[in-house]
């Protein structure tokens, strides 16, 4: 593997990992709220959360571009803080985070829903407050589902293309991830290098999904 290929691999793994870290806390919080509470309008929140799963990634990318672009409502505010998003590594991370978010929320929500609510109720009768119940009962019992969901979200972030190309562009050495680099190389007719990068991508994604399935598998066996 030559240096530039290493750089692309590390950039892709790093941005996917950062994107996954970025969505972990809000993803857990939203999954918990969706699993535990019912309120009017909940279906709307569920639908908005699931939209990136069913919409073309390019469409999601366009929405992000309009929001985070220099003239966008969020982008202009960030510009005033001297923080550029579009066509930077930050855009790669944000695009991957948005596209992976629904996958994380779905997996973690199922993990929370599988916990017998009686356990949390009994913990409260024993004098535990909401934070103690969450950190000593809910979170440990959902841990395997959370780990599996996190790995799946990471795998999704690794392969992100459509939203990334809209928001971050396809700038070699700056915003090009493995997916984008493969696309570039195929366009240039360098199939050998493209196939090599493809092999790296498959190896990394396979490891993440395999680990996720193993974690879920051990959970099913324990049940």
């Amino acid at each position: 593997m030559i240096t530039s290929e290493w750089q692309v691999v590390w950039f892709t793994v790093g941005s996917a990992a950062l994107a996954t870290l970025l969505i972990l806390v809000p993803g857990l919080a939203l999954a918990w709220v969706l699993a535990r509470f019912h309120w009017p309008g909940k279906a709307i929140v569920e639908t908005i959360t699931a939209l990136p799963l069913v919409m073309p990634p390019v469409a999601t990318g366009l929405i992000l571009l309009k929001l985070l672009g220099r003239r966008g409502p969020i982008g202009s505010w960030l510009e005033s803080l001297d923080l550029s998003i579009v066509f930077t590594w930050r855009a790669v991370v944000i695009a991957a985070a948005v596209m992976s978010f629904p996958l994380l929320v779905r997996s973690v929500r199922v993990a929370f829903e599988e916990i017998n609510p009686r356990l949390e109720q009994i913990a409260r009768t024993l004098g535990a407050g909401e934070m103690r119940v969450f950190f000593t009962i809910t979170l440990p019992l959902a841990a395997r589902g959370i780990v599996a969901g996190t790995l799946l979200a990471f795998a999704r972030a690794l392969g992100e293309f459509g939203a990334t190309v809209m928001l971050a562009g396809n700038i070699p050495g700056k915003t090009a991830t493995l997916s984008l680099a493969i696309y570039n190389l195929v366009q240039l007719g360098d199939d050998d290098t493209a196939l090599r990068l493809l092999a790296y991508l498959i190896a990394i994604a396979f490891t993440a999904v395999w680990l996720g399935e193993r974690v879920l598998g051990s959970k099913r066996r324990k049940q």
Binding site: N116, R118, Q121, R124, L126
Partner: peptide
């Protein structure tokens, strides 16, 4: 709140952690 009621609850299934 449940945590301040001072009620010990042994549910049907035990509900052990």
């Amino acid at each position: 709140p449940s945590r301040e009621r001072g009620i010990g609850y042994v549910s049907q299934e035990g509900a052990l952690f």
